[in-house]
């Protein structure tokens, strides 16, 4: 493996946002062909790290940001098609908004069958559940047809069985993958390298075979802090206050 080309390289990289240190002297190198899982509690800097990696070679990457970067008004088909925009001419792309292009229609229909979305192909996104939306986001990443996949909690909202299957498929379709996860078991079973982050630092970077569930749990317990989860103010409806 070591003869593969280095794709991502960070050496003692730090980043401050709004007075907070979000990345603290992170050093890291990822080669083509590696499948890396990124673990750590919320607020540890996983999303920031993924964004830093994305900027290193954006033209080779299929990115699946948190929330999927979906466009609510467009249909499932169009949302997946967005992945192919750089392979289609401008006029054809605009025409596709009016009338789907035949070749893409066939390919995307097939893809949505894999994703279990075939009945929703022409639904607009705002009519879908969280799990369905996430599968659309995966569909777009797959349809980008790039060698590298960067995913930020790509399967967090789908049911466990489907999560296994989709993750397998994603890893099989991409030569290289860096994926942040909160499910430790998925990380151990599907990836060959695991990086654990805490407070903007890398506190563990080892081959998956060298780790087990308990070893990983230890990293979480040390750092679990009460302020890490904060409810969004608009979500506190009166029902909560009243109870």
């Amino acid at each position: 493996m070591s003869d593969q080309q280095v794709l991502f390289q960070l050496s003692a990289h730090s980043l401050e946002l709004g007075g907070h240190t979000v990345l603290d002297a992170v050093s890291l190198s990822i080669r083509a062909g590696e499948k890396v899982a990124l673990l750590g509690p919320s607020g540890a800097g996983k999303t920031t790290l993924l964004n830093q990696l994305y900027q290193q070679c954006p033209e080779q990457i299929a990115l699946q940001p948190q929330g999927g970067g979906l466009v609510d008004l467009l249909s499932v088909y169009q949302n997946v098609f967005i992945g192919a925009l750089d392979r289609v001419g401008t006029c054809a792309a605009l025409w596709n908004l009016v009338r789907p292009l035949r070749t893409h229609r066939d390919a995307i229909t097939k893809l949505t069958e894999t994703l279990g979305l075939e009945t929703k192909l022409w639904h607009s996104l705002d009519r879908l559940s969280g799990g369905q939306r996430q599968r659309v986001a995966i569909g777009r990443a797959l349809y980008r047809q790039q060698p590298v996949f960067l995913g930020d909690e790509p399967v967090s909202s789908v049911d466990p069985l489907q999560a296994q299957m989709l993750l397998d498929y994603l890893l099989q379709q991409h030569e290289t993958a860096v994926v942040s996860l909160h499910n430790r078991r998925l990380a151990l079973e599907h990836f060959d390298r695991i990086i654990v982050m805490r407070d903007g630092r890398i506190c563990c970077d080892r081959a998956a075979t060298e780790l087990d569930s308990e070893a990983l749990d230890a990293f979480y317990q040390e750092s679990s802090s009460p302020e890490s989860e904060q409810p969004a103010p608009s979500e506190t409806g009166w029902a909560i206050t009243a109870s």
């Binding site: 033209e59 999927g68 970067g69 979906l70 967005i82 750089d86």
Partner: peptide
Amino acid sequence: APGQTLSPSL
């Protein structure tokens, strides 16, 4: 986010 999932050269 949606813009980030596109090819940067689009």
